[in-house]
Design a protein around this nucleic acid. Structure first.
Lengths: 206, 206
DNA sequence: CCGATTTTCAAACCTTCGTTTGAATTCCCA
DNA sequence: TGGGAATTCAAACGAAGGTTTGAAAATCGG
């Protein structure tokens, strides 16, 4: 692996990540990225095979960062009770709320995709979402044994959605009217709250 | 007022409203609008003084449609108890949830603006939001007499935000996992729910 | 029905976009 | 250290964007 070219790649992805988060895919030009990264314009085509390829790389990194924590603890969950596993899932799902602003950028990118998904995003999700969705589905099945696949899918999406409300609107919630700043303790409290509701709701349906 | 030219203007605004809602401001081209409206390309510059002017007109119509109902009932509210006035405010705020899909388009446009506000939107809000915000502020002051202006502003935004969650995510909420279809009765029920929370919350602070 | 005004139209203009090109430079291992 | 591969670079290309233009057509009051 050649060193200097890795530097170029990294400078491009860092600059692109920031600009895509701020202005969205269409609002970000190749020329703006290379100016911020202080790199030649053709470098994006050389290293990433075009703007789409670069965006795909940024999306992939964001997606991985948001799911790797869950996937890493998949085995532990099996040994826990379904209630504890669910609460642990929720807590990890809310984990990006604490700490680095790297996650804020990722959430902004996903917010852009929520308004109007790009083809790149659709393709990536259909490839990479499977293992993560499988995790949620396994959890759901412990509460709804014997449920048909369609019900499991729906319940999994619903489960993930419970947390994404807080993830998606983190910036707005933290601002003036609400001022919901979530430190470690607050996230723990929030996770307990949501976890309780979900255990109650899913338990009742079983 | 000349008739035929009004037809042209209306065809343009109708087509533009749909395209802006679907693809956002940047994603919508002049050429796409005139093709959908079956109108000459220069007509947009002639009638609206450019793309910005057209977008401004569409935004203004959307803004008016979403606030006119509240403003029309401003006088009635003064004769009601603060609790009833608050509940009526909430109910009217949720009103777009029922009925015409014209409102869905308006909400989609506002969703685009929520991710990254355009200069046109910022300017329009600073001009047209004042009377509507004043309405909410009056309501808040009945619960928080003697509160400083800043607190009133914050509380007003918070009050409006309680409803916008349901308005903004209407389409997603109606879809598969949640299936929250809000007919007249459901909106009435939801308004009572939110109204109760707010009366409780604000009442306690007074 | 005339003549001034308003409105439409096709074409071109200029800018910005993503991508391509081919030469120049740097890198790295044999 | 020399030579082939990898990487950088400035320039240009073609497509698509918003706007402008000036003439043709339609409109409408008198």
């Amino acid at each position: 692996m050649t060193r200097p070219s890795e530097v170029t790649r990294e400078r491009i992805t860092k600059a692109a990540e920031r600009l895509f988060a701020e202005r969205g895919y269409d609002g970000t030009s190749i020329r703006a990225i290379v100016a911020k990264a202080r790199v030649n314009q053709a470098a994006i085509n050389y290293h990433f095979d075009g703007k789409d390829g670069l965006y795909r790389e940024v999306l992939r990194a964001a997606f991985r960062a948001m799911t790797e924590d869950q996937l890493a603890h998949a085995e532990e969950a099996k040994a826990m009770s379904r209630e504890d596993a669910l609460r642990a899932f929720i807590r990890r799902q809310l984990h990006p709320l604490m700490g680095r602003d790297e996650y804020s950028r990722y959430m902004r990118i996903f917010n852009w995709e929520a308004v109007r998904p790009t083809p790149v995003f659709r393709a990536l999700v259909s490839e990479e979402a499977a293992p993560f969705m499988g995790l949620a589905a396994n959890l759901v099945r412990r509460f709804l044994p014997g449920a048909d696949p369609r019900t499991v899918t729906v319940a999994s999406i619903w489960l993930i959605g419970q947390c994404s409300v807080f993830l998606r609107n983190r910036e707005q919630l933290a601002q003036s009217p609400i001022g919901l700043v979530l430190d470690d303790a607050a996230v723990e409290w929030l996770a307990g709250l949501i976890g309780g509701w979900l255990v109650g709701g899913l338990g009742r349906q079983a």
